[in-house]
Design a binder for these strands. Sequence first.
DNA 1: TCTTTATGGTGAG
DNA 2: TCACCCTAAAGAT
Length: 263
Amino acid sequence: MPEGHTIHRLARDLNRDLKGKCVSASSPQGRFHAGAKTIDSQQCRGFEAFGKHLVGHFGDVDVLHVHLGLIGKFRPTSGDPIGAVRLRLTGPDEERNWDLRGPMVCTVGPPDLAESVADSVGPDPLRRSGKSADFIDAMSRRRIAVGAALLDQKVVAGIGNVYRAELLFLAGISPTTPANQLSSDDVMQIWDLASAQLRQGVKLNRIVTVDPTEVGSTTVRAIPRGDRLYVYKREGDPCRRCATPIAMSEVGGRKLWHCPTCQ
DNA sequence: TCTTTATGGTGAG
DNA sequence: TCACCCTAAAGAT
């Protein structure tokens, strides 16, 4: 489930378990022997997220870079490794492991690796350094559809296919509007919504964009699966606000859902 | 139980 | 534009 919120949450959880601790690292699957050996038995100095990129600091000079891609998982487990575990990290609690499977990227490099990862993406609304001005500037330079621009990690870091659809619904913007033709109010609204929604995603460890009162719940946590989103994967279902059937199209090479009336 | 699909991104052609 | 990476939940049977 990797959009930006997942990675920021992962960094937080990994820090709670491993930051400041001596960590053992291994590659049960075998494809990351050298990298695991490099960070093995070193002190974990902390993890941080840049959009969908996870960066871990070990010892004085070693940097771990992980990108989960579409199918990667990095989860706490116990017992023998199951399946192809690329990297296993274990802290002082030897019964608890963090197992990485199916990542798109898993490398270890020198200190400037962290910098190059940070520089490879645009502003991240979940980081203090993520500035709305950079987002506004990037949007003004794109003639492509806003629905495509929001998937470009150079424009804004951390938004994926679920959030782009949901944010555009919340903002009431048609996905095919050229990014550089949006009003400055619309662009700022998208940024603020992204910031708030991703932050909630980190807190809940899941994507919930609907207002609980609109689906008969009292809290966001009580919303049943299937009622948590406004448009994503709801083709043909009635819009939660106007009952117009949700439409599906392809924008930026990926499926995008929207309400033709509300947007 | 098997098949399909996916919240991502790269690199070849 | 498409194959690929190669997990795992959801859907089909």
